[in-house]
Design a protein around this nucleic acid. Structure first.
Lengths: 207, 207, 207, 207
DNA sequence: AGATAACCGAGACGGTACGTCCCGTCTTTTT
DNA sequence: AAAAAGACGGGACGTACCGTCTCGGTTATCT
């Protein structure tokens, strides 16, 4: 597939794999994606270049895996033994959504998260294969949390029953992503709150 | 030593400028942004490399200008001599928004538009300076068309008076951009319609 | 840590040794010395790389041993059970020398001999240690055959008594090696004959 | 031929060409041919690798040209304005030959000459194309000097009239090359003298 | 007969160099 | 003075091998 033939993954060095992850994330954060090179990652990780090319098809794939690992660890740490990270359900839908949207805004403003995920998103925009993997492995699981909370809202009578929730969530996540990626205007808590309110109650006058 | 600043733009060759635009767009469409090189653009345009470096700071800047030129021509053609392109106002806000959102979906699904703008968006995501220029020159003028139509809606009583329309428009454009850039799900007319409806009438049940 | 010295040669696999010899000779003949790699030899021989590195210090050493083995077998076959290969002594020194020089020319024109020995000679030219081993194990024994025949010539009155025969022989072998290695002019039987005649009777006019 | 198309040799940088020559000779002398790399030559010469690959097909070709340049300069210096280097003609053929053979022995024992020419000879032994060029450009011109002196000898009655002088010279040069390249025994002035004497007067007893 | 070495095949590993592609600068010649 | 052309110093690419290093799996003695 990749090489002449597939390498034997049972003999893979875990030490090297982790060193490569760390080096990739560090370099992207420090010097940016464009100036991060496979050669640089290998040197920083104390690893031969071939060890990278043996297991990953591209710089972007290394970074994607490294970032996935990172977020998994972070999620595990946050969940503290609990099942998985979730959107809270206090009964107040608007408040719950604002909480999570504000948290998202904070993440997008934190360089440790912003820089690598920006790089991945950019690469995925141009490279369909990686983009699909990015969406499937990273994005979609997070979006499904919205679906779950909105479904609970439906049952509580806070969300219209006739909605496609997979679409509904994009009214919340889309605007944030828009500002984050396209740099039109700053991403603030106030904006997060406004998006939640506008989405829940609509642009048209009520009644 | 260096070109020691400020080439004389009055003596600039228009022929070369246009050939470079065309070559850049063609190459990005044909082989993708990453494999498009300055050398390649120069060769394709029948131009010396220095002619590119004299007038543009980077490959991305060439493409941005070329794309701007392209959209301007397209807009001029569409407007057929009229001032500029606008969102129509038939009195039916939902219908008008759906019309323009569907048109946007169509553009995003047309390779001649999709490939170069995707490349520019991706570059802008990682390169703040270019991103800002992309937003200012390309994005913002289009977004202001929504503000204008929504303001008319406010006056007609179809849009709540207490809204910040610059935010309101993002409920419409954000979800489309989200699907376009992040490749979560396909971009269809049905989706455009749903976004317009959900945004106008809100996720929460009415009165 | 390292193989910490001295593998146990009593447990060595003869099968592997021979397979490595064969693979080395085959590859040198087929693709040339420079493109013959230790990895290639190992793969062709169906052997682990370490098995080569355990028993030989270098690619050149493998080839030298393989070639030694080959020439020994060839000599054994030619001598047909007799002690060793010898220059015949028919009483006619010039004829005997021409016979063996012509045979040498034939060998040098036979790819199965030419290619590997060329490779070894070339390596020995640049690598003093291997060169010395090449000379001692392969060359010198053959040259001593000339000494023996020339000594018999001395006793028969066909060779001057005041000569250093170790030097004398080089008047015969040197010119052939010169053409063989340095590719100045083609190596033919006529050339071999001329060398024998010129060397025996001298360049200066007689009497 | 070499690249996609031939580079424009009128725009070639002479400074780089010379720096590359010098670096190649220095490295071969200092670390040996095998450890001399194109990358190393480029670095030492303060030159991009591509500048080497643009003008030469291989490391060996660089070295050959560098060495040719060197010997030409040396010859020009030795000839001190005279036409070209020649074998002297004092009327005593044996003495003249010994003089030039001893000089050859001295060259072969001088590392500044020995190391690069050994490397070239070795490469030429394995690489027919380079070997032919080596013979044609470097070797043959020198060998023709012998032909000239021997022809004068013929006219003076010191050399048999029935000889092919192109072959005769190899009785002199061949044995020296043999010891030089194949490292059988040391190359001394005494050996040079013996070769001249044996070749001139023959191995067989005189009348 | 079981333990215990060593060799053996396989191939991952940290490295070095390869030959190629482009970068952005420069110089030369033409328009 | 701009433009076409392209050589230049440089840096990274992805590949091929180097020689070292585990890893099971077979032998092949030595208790």
């Amino acid at each position: 597939m990749a090489d002449s033939r597939a390498p034997d993954s049972t003999r893979r060095s875990d030490r090297s794999r982790r060193a490569i992850h760390d080096a990739a994330l560090a370099l992207v954060t420090e010097v940016g994606y464009a100036k991060t090179t496979v050669e640089g990652i290998a040197a920083r990780a104390g690893v031969g270049k071939q060890t990278i090319y043996r297991w990953w098809p591209s710089k972007a794939a290394v970074l994607l895996e490294a970032f996935l690992d990172l977020t998994e660890q972070a999620a595990r740490a946050a969940a503290d033994g609990a099942a998985t990270y979730e959107i809270p359900d206090t009964g107040d839908l608007a408040a719950d959504l604002k909480l999570v949207l504000r948290a998202t805004v904070d993440e997008m403003n934190d360089p440790a998260f912003d820089l690598p995920s920006r790089a991945l998103a950019a690469e995925g925009i141009v490279n369909a294969e990686l983009g699909a993997e990015f969406a499937r492995k990273l994005l979609e699981p997070q979006l499904q949390l919205y679906v779950k909370r909105l479904r609970a809202g439906q049952e509580a009578g806070d969300v219209r029953r006739d909605l496609d929730l997979r679409i509904a969530l994009e009214l919340l996540a889309g605007p944030l992503a828009h500002r984050w990626l396209l740099r039109t205007l700053p991403l603030t808590h106030a904006y997060a709150d406004a998006v939640a309110d506008y989405a829940l109650y609509g642009l048209a006058p009520r009644g």
